[in-house]
Nucleic acid binder design. Structure first.
Lengths: 347, 347
DNA sequence: TGTTAGCACTCACCTCGCCCGAGTGCTAAC
DNA sequence: GTTAGCACTCGGGCGAGGTGAGTGCTAACA
């Protein structure tokens, strides 16, 4: 069942030609364009074998061959040549990335747009989440009669706030005291540390504000367990660049699918382990009906050991895997710097 | 140059039939489907007149007529019958709108998705902005050695924050003092009120922190003049529902256009005065090359007298104006309640 | 004078048949 | 095992012919 060297070379040639031209590739063209030292007829025989083994498909009798899902899988796992971005490409990328970012959301939306531009494919990207967050600072202040603002600062630097109605009367002075006390109790703690006994201790010390404190504590916990995996979809219309989506119905099905936040999230949830590795999911490996004819190149990004998120590039199964993997790796390297800078200085 | 009653009826019939069927409409069909008491031949004569006057176009000799941009304009201004949403429609809408919103962004993204679903058209929508904001509260706190957090609360309730590096040493106690002083100086003021003399006064009192104060003041002013008109685009793929976009190139051009944040902003910037009125922009009235064959129904939304924003529904010039105007009005009425609730209780 | 019936004409669109070319599979020779 | 040759397949492009919806014009009618 394992492929001989020659079959591998031929499969590689077919996959690469097909990725480049989007046309079924025939034996004659391979003989001509690749220096395999074989005649078209020989290649034809090998192709017939490869088809029988499931690595190639035939759209119809008199067309050339097309890689099957299995063919792509083998190519990606064993045959794909790493593509190294040229100096020029890297410089273009860097200059596109070099701009003023207002906050993390803007980094994500700008970066996903850039990726989709260079890959000519739709890109999905999550906002970075903070791993195992801890409270750095909790502060409450009255901003109106009966309306308090809770500000929670987490390590890694994200800041969240929430307005809370205060039912009883709490004075400005009181809220300062509560705020300082709560801060002394919570600073440095993670979600796990804020357990029943800790909460009881807080209630015990400031029983008269229990209702209010409960709201605050709930919010703090929410911030710590925060899994807002908000998803951005960049350049969805790029899917129309690919000839496999020139059929309007197919294009619509795909766009409808990816426009939906939940679906975009599902796509990004496809990473298993693999950690910082780039993962490639081909066709129905995704287990999503609507992605049957598309592939996804997924990568995790990290920054400062605290932030992490996911990027996915979606294209037809015929997408240029080598180039897209390379683009994602190049971006990932830059992203660490950008995110760290934005995260610590601004937001 | 003004149209007689009969010509108006015929124009109306043509526009409505064309909106419903997307096919050029012929004299015979009008005679049959509309009870005008006229023969096809008479209608034909009137149609020839209407064409000469510029209200109708003819795709080719042997097709029916199609409304021209002028025709749509006249229809929208003078002939369009108000469509009243049915009780069922309103109930469906309300139940779709009835959900838990995390914050204003989520309202905007959910609502724009709902609108695009019921109108079957792409929808663009701005985040609400606060009119003539005033400072309610300014607070600074040290969250790390050399890192301060500025929190600005504006009336209407929006809260923004920014982290600032502090170069010199500022103690926790000092920052409290600066914070209280600045708050006493700025509370209740709008952008106009924070003028040169006010700033000088602040610097005068706290000269040793001038560098730091400058950063804070700049940020406060930025918040007050805040024009973050962030734009959401909902249901862009809906454009593919319309037969005029079954051509893949046209679809791509449009999607590429609207996927771009700047362009979406341009579209929403088309409102002139008109205030709470719904405004309809037809074809090249927008002055945007890419919108030559599309129309936009624009509406302003308001909440609590403080928040306001814009919604736009984009479709082919053949879009169902009456229905879309009605949908927008119905949504607008609900939006006031939702936004007010979300704004004052959460975020 | 306005309205209508009749008729010739136009033109997009569909279908059918045709040919072309790229590609295959098989066979026989090297 | 490799290769040349050849018959066969089949999608795609092209042009001819038919169809039908719609128009414009003319002449008759109220």
């Amino acid at each position: 069942m394992d492929l001989g060297k020659r079959k591998q070379l031929i499969l590689q040639a077919i996959v690469e030609d097909y990725i480049a031209t989007a046309e079924p590739v025939g034996s004659r063209n391979i003989a001509k364009n690749h220096d395999l030292g074989l005649s078209a007829a020989t290649i034809r025989n090998e192709m017939a074998d490869l088809e029988e083994m499931g690595y190639l498909d035939k759209p119809h009798t008199s067309a050339g061959r097309v890689p099957s899902q299995l063919g792509y899988r083998f190519y990606v796992d064993s045959l794909m040549r790493r593509y190294s971005a040229t100096v020029e490409e890297i410089e273009n990328l860097n200059s596109a990335l070099h701009q003023r970012y207002v906050n993390l959301s803007s980094v994500v939306s700008v970066v996903s747009d850039i990726i989709s531009k260079i890959t000519k494919c739709p890109t999905v990207m999550t906002l970075p989440t903070v791993a195992s967050a801890k409270v750095v600072n909790v502060k409450m202040l009255m901003i109106e009669e009966n309306l308090a603002l809770i500000v929670v600062v987490l390590d890694g630097g994200s800041v969240r706030n929430k307005k809370v109605k205060v039912s009883g009367k709490i004075t400005y002075r009181e809220i300062d005291a509560i705020s300082d006390f709560l801060n002394s109790q919570l600073a440095g703690l993670g979600a796990k540390d804020i357990d029943e006994s800790r909460i009881m201790l807080i209630y015990g010390a400031m029983g008269q504000y229990k209702d209010f404190l409960k709201v605050v504590l709930d919010f703090v916990l929410e911030c710590l367990q925060n899994n807002i995996t908000e998803v951005y979809v960049g350049g969805a219309s790029n899917i129309l660049n690919h000839p496999e989506f020139c059929d309007i119905d197919r294009a619509r099905d795909f766009l409808r699918f990816i426009d939906n936040r939940e679906n975009a999230t599902k796509v990004l949830a496809l990473t298993t382990g693999g950690d910082s590795d780039v993962k490639i999911i081909i066709g129905d490996e995704a287990g999503l009906e609507e992605m049957r004819d598309t592939s996804i190149v997924l990568a995790n990004y990290h920054a400062g050991g605290i932030l992490s998120g996911k990027i996915g590039v979606i294209g037809p199964t015929r997408m240029d895997y080598a180039r897209i993997v390379s683009s994602l790796e190049t971006i990932n390297a830059q992203l660490e710097t950008i995110l760290t800078a934005v995260f610590y200085n601004e937001e």
